[in-house]
Design a protein around this nucleic acid. Structure first.
Lengths: 338, 338
DNA sequence: AACGTTCGCGCGAACGTTCGCCTATATGAT
DNA sequence: ATCATATAGGCGAACGTTCGCGCGAACGTT
């Protein structure tokens, strides 16, 4: 079993040609019941397993799906990765594919990594994450006509298959909840306007406020990088507003800023959940252990990963895509902070 | 460029045989300067890149490293994964290898996944994590003589290459720090005795206490699964001890239990860092944002990932391994909780 | 002038698989 | 008896690469 068991070995044992073994095992040839039996037994007893490299060679494809992700800084957490990767790997394996993770490069050379994987025929398609407006990878792959599915949308005029979480629906849900609890001055800690995901999430905030006929409080929309420190500083500014203008609730476009907000509230001697209500976004695993536990919006990450691979495999098999765009609904997880 | 550029295409353009192109590009054949130039230019202008599938076919290897990890439950965080995976992927790529992630299976069928990847020749070697005593994968791979490197030790009598973090050194550092600050009753929230990693980390606790000549306080060593809830309950039990027996400091073998401990302290109206000192283990990215920020022990994960791949690649290239066992030192990260 | 030696390059083979085509025998219809 | 047809399985080729061997020409030595 350790020396390579090839079709020829099985054929020798079964007393047929190796091509016949191939066809029989792949169900492409009808043979006499006895021969069929002999071949199956030989394959079984020798422990034959097809050499995937040779299969790839013959098929001219690698049955690999390229995937690259931005590595978070060591003090940030990528709680997404485990779920997303695991779900993709499982879905891919079920379809006879595997994932090929490769290092993420910033800037100009980013597309080079994709080009190289295509040129060396290491992958049959890509799953993209962290896409943004005018993502060079999308332009490149569309131009090359190379199969890919993106987790996340980009420019509306670019036509490509994607799966995304409906961020607007998430914040809308959260803001509606806050409005129903009587809050009127609801602040938002947002990302810079250049962030597509940020704009999506923010949209739900506007929608909910407008639908309720509640005008935005002045100074209540703050933007910055989504870090703890930025969240803290923005919140301190909000809390220093005169009493009548000060927001009673706050929604952050990610958990890290929400945690910064909670920290700021404590610095001002306020109790989160009572004096200031805070809602985050992402529902990172640890936020349930914060004091108080953070209300946040959870994305169906595993489902997204499965869907991305499922769609990509459909493309790779040359079948028509049922739905080119999939929008998944996030869920508000209520905890003591709101 | 989109139609396949093979050696033959380059050869046709350069006016030589395709085998010559191969050898020249691989630096295995000395040719006249003019021919050399012609070949390089042809390869360049056509954008030739070797077909990796064919290379694998020829070499009889896949240049892939199999890796599988236990998926944490959705409410736990695997902050390790991003760093570990990224570092491995980078190191592998630099050596001409790629990572092949595959789904983790529990129980009996776990080894089957490894067997299948070997039989179908999809991987040349494995990196193992989450190894424990009598890990069936280690037994299987040793028996097969298939190359692998483990991140984590197993039974002492099993001889295989590994990289590990010196957990004992980590807790020793932490306990020495606590002792130097005057603490004498130092509790430990530990894992069940069946956990190898737990025993390693606990060892440092014993060593430091013994070296200082401080006897362990009774009831101060508690064991359980490393969850928030277990950490909380164990700490409540400690805090309910009579004043003279109650520990003044506590070290948890992972951050999740430490966070449970902080929660328990708050429930009893104690202030962490003043009334009860808490140290965690792992230094998960978010613990810096807890209130108070958690002192914890950080493992050099990226370094471990690089080392694992480096050693495995050395094995795969048939070179002798400099060091079969690598023990990396963790670092105590001091914050307000201790 | 004859003879090794090096240089520059071509040629055939092989890795293991799948696919299309071919052949020989058996089966049925005319 | 003849011919078309189906059945069972063999055979050659190809995917793109690398590797070992061979061969002619140029070169230097005696």
């Amino acid at each position: 079993m350790s020396p390579k068991v090839t079709l020829k070995a099985v054929a020798a044992q079964a007393g047929v040609s190796y091509q016949t073994v191939s066809k029989v095992l792949n169900g492409q040839l009808q043979v006499s019941p006895e021969t069929h039996q002999r071949i199956l037994e030989a394959a079984q007893s020798l422990g034959y397993r097809p050499n995937q490299i040779a299969r790839n060679m013959r098929a001219g494809r690698s049955f690999m799906i390229g995937y690259s992700w931005v590595q978070t800084s060591p003090d940030q957490v990528n709680h997404i990765l485990d779920q997303f990767l695991s779900s993709m790997v499982r879905e891919a394996e079920a379809a006879g594919y595997h994932l090929l993770p490769f290092p993420f490069h910033e800037g100009e050379e980013q597309v080079d990594a994709y080009r190289e994987l295509i040129a060396t025929r290491r992958v049959d398609g890509f799953v993209l994450t962290s896409v943004d407006y005018n993502d060079p990878r999308i332009h490149f792959l569309l131009e090359r006509g190379f199969p890919f599915v993106a987790f996340g949308r980009s420019n509306p005029e670019l036509d490509f298959p994607w799966v995304d979480v409906d961020g607007a629906a998430g914040t809308r849900q959260a803001v509606e909840y806050l409005l129903a609890r009587g809050h009127r001055r609801i602040a938002a800690l947002a990302w810079p306007e250049s962030s597509r995901v940020g704009n999506d999430r923010l949209e739900g905030y506007f929608q909910a406020m407008q639908a309720a006929g509640v005008s935005l409080c002045p100074h209540c929309l703050l933007r910055g990088e989504g870090t703890f420190e930025v969240g803290r500083e923005m919140t301190l500014r909000l809390l220093d507003l005169p009493a009548g203008e000060r927001p009673t609730a706050l929604i952050a476009l990610n958990d890290t800023m929400a945690i910064g907000a909670m920290y700021a509230a404590r610095e001002r001697g306020l109790e989160v959940g009572r004096d200031l209500v805070v809602i985050g976004f992402d529902d990172a695993p640890m936020v349930q252990y914060l004091y108080p536990p953070l209300t946040s919006i959870r994305q169906p990450i595993a489902q997204a990963g499965r869907k991305c691979v499922e769609m990509l495999v459909t493309l790779l098999e040359g079948k028509p895509l049922g739905e080119r765009h999939v929008l998944l609904a996030p869920r508000l997880i209520l905890r003591a902070s709101a």
